[in-house]
Design a binder for these strands. Structure first.
Lengths: 331, 331
DNA sequence: TTGTATGCGTTATCAC
DNA sequence: GTGATAACGCATACAA
């Protein structure tokens, strides 16, 4: 391993003071005949500024923390790609939190941000309660919320119109004459599940369906296997002509389950997913899905955070993403 | 935003010196009646140690950099999950590099590591040349290579037996009487593509096939769309009874393409993928795929890096992952 | 066990 | 435009 090279080494080699080198490195001195010498010394020695020293001095780490629930879910993979892209041309490095499923994990992660290793955080959590809210308010760095359900006026926030998205799917089913709709939801404690359920109930009622809560099944997780398990437990599946799934992974499981039972999709039962992930185009039949534009949300979150870092006094920004129903073969 | 609280604040409140507080924080002082006071002060003030100051002082950032080609590819998503898991119980935070496709991007990323913001790096690159090698040797932090093709005796290294994995697939085709095999490869410049191609040629020759290089198609990227494009360009597709795809995404594209042409999988043409990603079980037919255990490799890479960080003098570790053919419906 | 004091590498203030 | 120097917050060598 090579020896470490600091400002002092460069200064010595160039025959100037460290202050001058520092200025050149930071572009505070343009012309001057010294600059040439210094640049050469930097190249020859392979000098790279020490992040920690700089961070300590200017109180900024040039790092961003991305706090997400679960990298198994393609929707967060897409969001991550969006965030990556959003920061690509910036000076910021991206930190990836571990998977944050429970309130405790979220809190631990947020608390650790008190160590000042990040200049900002993009948080997308399945859960949101007062305790999390409290810790958020103690953070000394800007926060961008992606998908925080309730209105949180203090933070830049990118939400999705869940109710509308779910409603679009229900409407589409009805327009195709499918009125017996099963809503296959994920774990009911999570925020997205709550919102999507509300949207379903509301939309069904608007179509004059009584007691729509009877047409809801809950999978234990947002994945294909849980979908299969949940559907296996349903007695009279053929009473339904459509299944609306709370995300694409559940839809993938549903399609597998149905074709295993020789039930034709969409002829016998139509299926719509939510999130419109990469998966949708690869399934057979290809999956009709409500696009909540996860990658775009990630990119937008990055943009909002960058803008706030540049100017902390900007007014709070709120965006509600309009969902779009991407129609493919499954419905 | 709350005001910042340092060791000084805690020390003042507890009526001790900052050194004593520092020791308590770092667990260098056990009992003592002072500890109680200090802990209370820490709690009351909500003290969190400043990462930058600590990093500067001890010359360690408690951060790890994960440098990957492409988060669009599920195999790297899986690897990332493995790495996340591997570091979950450690003190290390995970930094995610931007997508590293070209040599230039890899070099830029590696150079930036000279800023000492990471204590170690896990590198999985599609490309490896002398220039990258040179920069690697100047790094002052441990490196774990995942999938560096050539032997690199200086670094902990987790490889995959590509040739063997591809051979398993070819053997399986032959055992099912399928001898006319098309190899649908990715961009030929990348390392995995080279290795997999070699494995294919070698294996075909061992089955007495002459000029196997005539049975190779190259997709422009490792994704479904590129697979469709590549297959569209093939005149006499029905001369083949099997397609081996260089990864699952290509296989997904191939299956879509074939079913679009009313070619039955596996009856008319069998398909095998590589990587055995989450996708495999969700396609129709489900995809037979060579498992290179990406998630496990990620976790192992994290383990190797942790061990080396703990003890830099350990002998270099090399592991070659044994592939496994996961048989599903597509072949 | 506790306190004092030094330095990690950098930026920024101040004189020149 | 340049150089000397203080300070960022912490860990630790040393003295007590």
């Amino acid at each position: 391993m090579a020896e470490k090279v600091t400002l002092f080494a460069v200064a010595e080699r160039a025959g100037v003071s460290i202050a001058t080198v520092s200025r050149v490195v930071n572009g505070l001195t343009t012309n001057g005949p010294t600059e040439e010498k210094i640049r050469r010394a930097i190249d020859e020695l392979g000098y790279e500024p020490n992040s920690a020293a700089r961070a300590l001095r200017v109180n900024a780490s040039d790092q961003i923390c991305l706090a997400l629930p679960d990298l198994n879910n393609p929707v967060y993979q897409a969001m991550t790609r969006g965030v990556q892209r959003g920061f690509k041309l910036s000076k910021y490095r991206l930190m990836l939190s571990p998977s944050l499923s429970t309130t405790e994990e979220v809190i631990l992660q947020l608390k650790s941000l008190g160590r000042n290793y990040a200049d900002g955080v993009i948080l997308s959590s399945l859960v949101f309660d007062e305790e999390i809210e409290k810790i958020l308010s103690t953070l000394r760095i800007p926060v961008v919320l992606v998908g925080g359900a309730i209105d949180r006026p203090k933070y830049d926030n990118i939400r999705v119109d869940s109710e509308r998205g779910v409603g679009m799917a229900v409407d589409y089913f009805f327009s195709a004459g499918r009125k017996k709709i099963l809503f296959l939801n994920g774990p009911w404690i999570t925020n997205p599940a709550k919102r999507r359920k509300e949207g379903f109930l509301e939309s069904m009622r608007s179509h004059q369906i009584k007691n729509p809560e009877n047409y809801i099944a809950n999978a234990k997780a947002f994945n294909p296997k849980a979908a299969v398990e949940a559907l296996s437990g349903i007695k009279k599946l053929n009473q339904f002509s459509a299944i609306l799934c709370a995300n694409d992974l559940l839809a993938a499981g549903a399609i597998k389950f149905l074709s295993g039972r020789k039930i034709k999709v969409p002829d016998d039962i139509a299926v719509i997913g939510i999130d419109n992930t990469d998966l949708a185009g690869l399934l057979t039949p290809t999956l009709t899905s409500v696009d909540f534009k996860a990658e775009y949300r990630g990119e937008l979150a990055a943009k909002y955070l960058l803008e706030r870092l540049e100017n902390p006094n900007l007014p709070i920004k709120k965006t509600i993403i309009e969902p779009e129903l991407i129609i493919r073969e499954s419905a």
